[in-house]
Structures are given as structure tokens and as C-alpha cells.
Design a binder for these strands. Structure first.
Length: 233
DNA sequence: CCCTGATTCGC
DNA sequence: GCGAATCAGG
């Protein structure tokens, strides 16, 4: 048995999917791979999300030579599939298997789907489309707020055999911060004034609370930022 | 490189 | 039905 997609699991998948979480994110929360998430989502006919890749090529009707994997199939006896004309480019073969095309599923509660092409660079869906409802862990302003990072005790989802009143909100995706981003976690700024000889065990930085916008505390900033005039004494 | 979702197809 | 492998765009 490869995997047991229990109703509950499916429910959670749907839930997270609708929340606009990325497939990888969902996968992390469910302790499965993103592939599994995507695959299942498709099978379930969940509304497709705006994918980074555009499949416009289909419009041209140009043959899509992609699918290297499909090449394997190519080795197999391939019945010549003639296009048989197809006068209208927009017309699509009705005989084709009915794809799980969602019928107008745009009204989803997703703030992620932004058809806008506005130049607003604020667009950063790369991280994750965070609708307003879901947790928004990526809030970093330059405020001196100290945020305690949530820690993950156990990656495995706790089984909830009984009375699971919609536990879905697992907020605080603890997932290991490995993204290229979030390198700037300036939570506790400290005075960077060096004390001691670099290279010696005694060496350290002041560590006091720095002045706003300064790398040094008041005491050391006074030394660090000496007016040129004064310097010359 | 990292990320993203989509698709194919062996199992 | 499942999901790794692969693709493909950012």
C-alpha cells in the first residue's frame, strides 16, 4: 500500500490547498512530498493554481515535443495520431478524455490568484501565496519586535483518531528555514563594537543594545562616530 | 541555486 | 490510484 489517503488526509489537503499554500508547503505539513500533493490534487480535480509555467503553447497548436519521459512511450508502438484537420484552432477534440476541468472555480477564497499584471513588484508569490486568512510568518519589518521562532518538536503529524474538530490550522509552519530568503533575521541587534583581540577566545562584541539605526550602543557609538573635526583634536 | 506547479507513466 | 521523475518558468 503506497499511501493511504484517508478522508481526513484528503480533507486537510483540500483545506490547505484552498488556503493557497504551496504544494511543497502542504507536503511539509502533511509529511508527504509535493509531488504527492500535486498528484493527488489533480486526481481530486482541485482547482489548479496559477503555475509559474505558462502553458500558452497549446494555443498555437504547436506540437509540444516536451515530455522526455514521454519519449519512453515513444518507444512503444505509437499509433499515428493524426490531427485530422481540425479546422478551428480553438476547437478542441470533444472525443478527448474529459479532463477534470474545474468549471469556473475562480471564486475560490484565494487571494493568491492574481491575474493582474500590474507592475507592482510587491508580487512575491514565490515564497507562498499567503492569503490573509492563513498564517503570515513572513512578516519582517524593521521593528524591534522580538519574535520567537516556533519550534517543531516532531515532524510527524499527530494522528487524530478521535474528535478532530478541524485541526487544520497548524499555524507557524516551522519548516526548516532553508530558503534563500530570510537570511536577515535581525531579531536581537547587539552592539557590534569589538572588544579584545580578534582571534583570541576573549574576543567578543559589546553586545549591548545598539542605538536605533546604529550598529553600536550609545557608549560605543560615541567613540565610533567621532566627528572629523574632533578627531584631529 | 532556489523556488514554483504540471505532466507523464511505471508501479 | 499513487507519486517519483521530469519538465518548465521565475
Amino acid at each position: 500500500m503506497a499511501m493511504e489517503w484517508t478522508d481526513e488526509l484528503i480533507a486537510r489537503l483540500k483545506e490547505l490547498w484552498e488556503q493557497g499554500l504551496s504544494t511543497a508547503e502542504i507536503g511539509r505539513q502533511l509529511s508527504i512530498t509535493k509531488n504527492a500533493v500535486v498528484g493527488k490534487a489533480h486526481r481530486l480535480g482541485l482547482p489548479p493554481r496559477p503555475s509559474p509555467i505558462r502553458n500558452k503553447t497549446a494555443a498555437e497548436g504547436a506540437a509540444k515535443p516536451v515530455r522526455s519521459r514521454a519519449k519512453k512511450a515513444e518507444a512503444a508502438p505509437v499509433a499515428a495520431e493524426t490531427e485530422v484537420g481540425t479546422p478551428a484552432p480553438s476547437a478542441q477534440p470533444v472525443e478527448k478524455k474529459k479532463a477534470p476541468v474545474a468549471k469556473t472555480v475562480k471564486a475560490s477564497a484565494d487571494g493568491a490568484a492574481k491575474p493582474t499584471k500590474s507592475k507592482a513588484k510587491a508580487d512575491k508569490p514565490a515564497s507562498e501565496g499567503k492569503p490573509v486568512k492563513a498564517a503570515a510568518p513572513k512578516e519582517d519589518t524593521i521593528s524591534p519586535v522580538v519574535v520567537e521562532a516556533a519550534k517543531e518538536a516532531e515532524p510527524a503529524p499527530a494522528p487524530r483518531p478521535a474528535a478532530p474538530p478541524i485541526p487544520q490550522r497548524k499555524v507557524a509552519p516551522p519548516r526548516r528555514v532553508r530558503g534563500a530568503l530570510e537570511r536577515a533575521s535581525r531579531q536581537g541587534p547587539t552592539c557590534q563594537w569589538p572588544i579584545g583581540d580578534p582571534g583570541t577566545p576573549e574576543f567578543h562584541f559589546c553586545g549591548a543594545t545598539p542605538l536605533p539605526g546604529k550598529p553600536y550602543c550609545a557608549e560605543h557609538a560615541a567613540i565610533a562616530y567621532v566627528k572629523i573635526r574632533d578627531r584631529r583634536h
